[in-house]
Structure formats: C-alpha cells, structure tokens
Write a protein that binds this DNA or RNA. Structure first.
Lengths: 96, 96
DNA sequence: TATTGTTTGGACTAATTCATCAAAAATACA
DNA sequence: TGTATTTTTGATGAATTAGTCCAAACAATA
C-alpha cells in the first residue's frame, strides 16, 4: 500500500530538496513534515496547493494521491467501499 | 445535502424507536446519539453493524450512506474529487 | 393541568491528536 | 576523520474531540 507520505518523499528526493525547504514553504516545522512523510502525522488538504507548487507536480495529480490515501486509510476495510464510491460519484455528478 | 445523521433519524422515527433504545444497542449515551443525529458528533464505522440491525436496514445500504457522508464532508470541496474517486475505484478493483 | 417519557444542552472529565523545541542520530562530503 | 547538514526522536504542553452525567426543555396523553 503506497502512502501519501511516501509519495511526497519520493518526489522531494527526486528534486533533491531538503525537508527544511519544503517545510518552510508550508510554514510548518521540519519534524512535522518528516512525520508526515513517514505517516506518523497526516497532511491536510490545505497543504496541497503549496506542495504541488514546491514539488512541481500538477494540482490534479497530488490531489488524486491525497484522496486515494485518505479514503483507503479510513474506509479501506469496509465491505461495500466499492459501492459507496460509486454512489458518491453518482451524487457529485448529479449536483455541481 | 443529506447528512448521515438525518438518515439515522428518519429511519429511527419510521420505526418509532426512542433514542434510548438505539443508544442502548450501541452502548452509548442517548445524548451522544442525539448529537450524532443532529451532526454535532460523528458516527464511527464500528457503529454500522449495530445500527443496521437495530434500524433494520441492510449493511450495504447503511455503509453506502456512511461512506457518502464521510467523503463529502471531508473532501467535498476538492477540485478533483471525481478523478480521485475514480482512481480509488481503480485501485481497489486492482487488489482484493 | 399533571404525569410520564423523550430529547437536548451544558458543565465537566478523559482521551486523542497536534505543534514546538532541542538534542540525538544519520548522512554527506571536504 | 572531522565538520556541516539533514533527518529523526521524544518530551512537553496546547488544542481538539469524545464521553459521562444530570438537569432543563419538550412532547404526548391521561
């Protein structure tokens, strides 16, 4: 299971950035970012725009990774997750 | 936007059950269930099997309602939620 | 209206989660 | 090896969230 933290770490190391730099952009302590990357803490959705810019990935890509990790970690063990996601999709297609 | 709490209250009132009964099955205080029904507290997924039995609905139905409410309340304002849900579906189809 | 049962609100406590900070550990490299 | 930089760890306290309990508010009905 690929965590969002691993995703962030991979991308950061690809760019050769230290935690310090990315944490500064997010305005959080490096230790917190370290913990996020190792899944001891969770990233918030408010961090996504800054992470996208700093890690030079598309907003869409990072948001998808975030959503996947969020849902699977909280709901991954439910029996009817698939149906639930399908129904949720129907609901959001209906509105908007 | 229909909340999970409203869903529970509707179903409970259809059956004419008092909070007291359902709360007893869940082994929580009536005031907590009251707050869950009015969205001042959140239900946990551990409550779902008991709620299904007590409210006489299918596990699948109540789980879908729970998942919808959970995702929309936490992620409903993200720009690429639709893509995220589709990707999550792909992921869970792949495994299992 | 009086009584009984149901629901809600709020004060208090407990448990969980989170941020800050400094020092230790690990890594890079002259 | 020695030094500088990066990363991790853990202690502490703040903040958020959850649970208990009881009294007030509300509803139904004799």
């Amino acid at each position: 299971m690929n965590s969002f933290g691993e995703y962030l770490r991979n991308r950061r190391e690809q760019l050769g950035l230290p935690l310090r730099k990315v944490a500064a952009e997010l305005d959080i302590d490096t230790s917190i970012l370290s913990k996020i990357e190792r899944s001891e803490r969770v990233a918030t959705k408010e961090m996504l725009p800054t992470l996208a810019k700093t890690l030079e990935v598309q907003d869409k890509e990072i948001e998808i990774e975030f959503i996947k990790a969020f849902i699977l970690s909280d709901l991954g063990d439910l029996n009817f997750l698939k149906s639930g996601l399908e129904e949720t999709l129907n609901t959001i297609k209906g509105r908007k």
